[in-house]
Amino acid sequence: MDLVQLVKEGNRVAIARLITKAENEAPEAAIAMRQLYSETGKAFLIGITGPPGSGKSTLTDKMVKELRKRGKTVGVIAVDPSSPFTGGAILGDRIRMSDLALDDGVFIRSMGTRGSLGGLSKATYDTIKILDAAGFEYILIETVGVGQSEVDIVKTADTTVVVSVPGLGDDIQAIKAGIMEIGDVFVVNKADREGAERVVIELAQMLELNANMGDWFPPILKTVAVRNEGIVEVVDKIMEHREFLTSSGELRNRRKERISNELFNLILKKVSAKISTKLSEENFWDSQLDEIIENQKNPYDVIDRVIDGILQ
């Protein structure tokens, strides 16, 4: 049974299995990814990020339903943090999407960050390609939005949706800290709560201050995701943004940048893995530690020598 062929045919057991192999960095996965690559690049990628408690999962659930209404097939990747101590994780996002489980046009996969610092796990990139190759037309990537990690998402998604919510005092601060630049669509969820209008105004003011705005001016939309309010508008705006990206040529630029990032990261990873193997094998510096401690040698010369040795 050829896993790659089954994935291309949309076999769900096979898709799931290949994702697992990619997550575990199994050698078969590396081979499969090469074979699948020609089938990728067709899906449109939507990133969804925001602080904990902003209702991202519910919003994702409703957006998927809206896309389904429009006849689109959808893959969802929901990323939750892994515990830095045990490596374990509770992946709870799909609880909000439980009635999508039986829809054959939807495939949801939960992932733990497994120690990666950005909001996305290392295997997220492979998973996107697998779902893409399996024929899902839209892929939604929902990530934990804390601090700097959101930047990962913009390097991956075609359209990034930034979710905020009234009543989280520090929320706007976090947005100020860096994600104003990455949002293509801003959503103020739970907009029936007190303070929603204030969040909208603050976002608008910050957007206006943002100098490097291109031809796309990010809209700010209000939703009450639990009641399915405002969802149609969010999906409409995403479609509009897609149209903009395509017609302006920006889509190609974004994807180039994404590939460039991915190449950079993968190369770095491979090289650093090779180096660590080599270093642990050959004990390059053990003999020199005493000399460094006794100030007979300085660490900088040792580093240069070691690197020169490896790169030869």
């Binding site: 892994s82 045990t86 490596g87 374990g88 994780a89 509770i90 992946l91 709870g92 799909r94 609880i95």
Partner: peptide, 9 residues
């Protein structure tokens, strides 16, 4: 989770 598993509930 505390045993290091990834748990989906």
């Amino acid at each position: 989770r505390d045993a290091g598993f990834e748990v989906i509930y």
